[in-house]
């Protein structure tokens, strides 16, 4: 199992009130699975995804990633895992506005200190694959929403991670560019990556082989097939 959550608890303090965003969540995901998470707003989907991506820490419970207990890793070790094993796709793309498409894709390689010639080769390849070769020099504000999300996907996959975490990747796109993006995500799954995708769109959610439904911080449904 690539992901194993055991009785994960996450509580937020809002004023005097305690909001239990995740309650005793236990979940296992096999390597190469395609899993969608659906549920009403505020049910804890994003919180769960952030914990899976090591951007957030659970208050209680244990999280094994690739058979490694992540709960007591320090900042540097967690960053190392994010760098090499996990790719994020966000609803708002989060491209750096002053950098070109190619430079945005290159960023994780640059930060990891990889050789420039190798970097260029890999970036060209990734952009080419996503049909963005002719947009390499464009800045994000010169790209359409769908193109921006594809640049973000190229960035998320440039380090060849084993897990892709997507939080409403089509939430900010019209239907046709949303479909394009979903096809890219599904092609990643076909190449063997584990994909966990949060979505509000039931139609998109249904396309995943495994569908998890959340409500009030609990997993209320977990269907396969």
């Amino acid at each position: 199992m690539i992901i194993r959550l055991e009785r994960i608890e996450r509580t937020f303090q809002v004023g005097d009130e305690q909001v239990r965003a995740l309650r005793q969540i236990s979940l296992g995901v096999q390597a190469g699975e395609y899993l969608s998470i659906m549920g009403p707003s505020g049910s804890g989907k994003s919180t769960l995804l952030n914990i899976l991506g090591l951007l957030d820490r659970p208050d209680q419970g244990t999280y094994w990633l690739e058979e490694r207990n992540t709960t007591d890793l320090n900042d540097r070790q967690q960053a190392e895992i994010r760098r090499h094993r996990i790719g994020f796709i966000f609803q708002f793309f989060h491209l750096i506005p002053r950098l070109s498409a190619a430079e945005n894709v290159e960023l994780p390689l640059t930060l990891a200190g990889i050789d420039p010639t190798l970097r260029k080769q890999r970036v060209d390849q990734a952009l080419d694959r996503l049909g963005l070769a002719d947009r390499a020099k464009h800045r994000p504000d010169q790209l359409s929403g769908g193109q921006r999300q594809r640049v973000a996907i190229a960035r998320a996959t440039i380090m060849h991670p084993s897990i892709i975490l997507a939080d409403e990747p089509t939430g900010n796109l019209d239907r046709s560019s949303g479909n394009e993006v979903i096809q890219v995500v599904e092609s990643l799954h076909r190449e063997g990556m584990t994909v966990v995708m949060v979505t509000h769109d039931p139609e998109l959610g249904q396309r995943a082989r495994r569908r998890v439904k959340m409500m009030d911080g609990l997993i209320v449904e977990d269907r396969e097939g």
Partner: peptide, 16 residues
């Protein structure tokens, strides 16, 4: 802020 968050998400340690 968003840029720093992104740097973290792509695996940049706080020190870096």
């Amino acid at each position: 802020t968003a840029e720093v968050g992104l740097l973290k998400a792509v695996g940049t340690p706080g020190r870096q």
